[in-house]
Nucleic acid binder design. Structure first.
Length: 270
DNA sequence: CCCGGAACCTGAAGGC
DNA sequence: TGCCTTCAGGTTCCGG
């Protein structure tokens, strides 16, 4: 599922195909995949524009366009993909035809993924919490966020308005790396635990980016390749596996309605 | 403001 | 064999 490392990889790998290219035509095969404006208006507003840059914020991708303030946004949600010059396939919802004979397709078997236009990237960016790798995202700032919440620590690090980019898989990996039970109230973490979790979050995300994302299920890169980050996962989606830290087994529990993988011995409830 | 839960959607997996 | 049910998960919306 596309989280920060997967979206970062998509952004990096789609950029060479699209930056500096003009959008010649647009096909909307599934109207609901265009969140706004209407599919007709969407097509009209982006046709003829040149993609000047591609950036990422949280799990969102921004395609910056020439000649105006419109930003073309994309979110993969659970199973979306952006593919460059793909082989014919199913679940294609939007196709961009570029002036270098490149085609970019948004595909998603679940139909959750969306593309849309905003006047300015701040319309989305301003609602998101800090990027985990930002200079101003310090241990102190992270501690301040956790201290104010009684919700499970996992729910807090998944909240995009508080910290952006972390999803279910990397949350589990980070909490295991820190040996913290995911349902602990966020404000109950000791300063040492806050620091450890801060470090673990950045560690698992960095590793995920290095491995081009985790292909646990549907995630594929713009060229069609899989990522390999999941081969390094220690707990995520690993119920029944042996815990790498002790002789116990990984268990699946539910925290705030989310499937959550833990080692009950290494991450005690307290 | 804070917190929790349902809804959105459909392929895959499990049950009988 | 195959039908039916349940599950997964990012975000948004709604209720307490």
């Amino acid at each position: 599922m596309p989280e920060l490392p997967e979206v970062e990889t998509i952004k990096n790998e789609i950029s060479p195909y699209v930056v500096g290219r003009k959008i010649k035509s647009v096909e909307v095969l599934t109207p609901m995949t265009v969140a706004r404006p209407s599919p007709e208006e969407f097509k009209k507003r982006i046709t003829g524009r040149t993609i000047t840059d591609v950036t990422r914020r949280g799990k969102y991708i921004f395609f910056h366009l020439s000649g105006g303030d419109d930003v073309l946004m994309a979110h993969m949600k659970l199973a979306g993909a952006l593919l460059a010059n793909p082989a014919p396939g199913k679940h294609t919802h939007i196709v961009l035809h570029l002036d270098n004979d490149t085609t970019v397709e948004m595909r998603d078997p679940r139909k959750f993924a969306r593309m849309w236009l905003e006047n300015d990237e701040s319309a989305v960016a301003d609602k998101l919490g800090p990027e985990p790798f930002d200079k101003d995202f310090t241990v102190k700032k992270f501690g301040g966020i956790l201290k104010k919440r009684k919700a499970p620590v996992k729910a807090v690090i998944l909240d995009q308005a508080l910290i952006s980019g972390i999803g279910n898989m990397y949350a589990d990996e980070a909490l295991f790396d820190s040996r913290i039970y995911p349902a602990r109230p966020a404000d109950s973490l000791t300063p040492a635990e806050v620091k450890k979790l801060y470090t673990s979050i950045r560690k698992v995300l960095r590793k995920g980016i290095e491995k081009k994302g985790a292909s646990v299920r549907d995630y594929i890169r713009p060229g069609g390749e899989h990522g390999s980050a999941h081969t390094d996962f220690l707990v995520a989606h690993g119920a029944g596996n042996k815990c790498p830290g002790c002789d116990g087994a990984i268990e699946r529990i539910v925290v705030r309605g989310r499937g959550t993988y833990i080692c009950p011995k290494c991450q005690p409830e307290k």
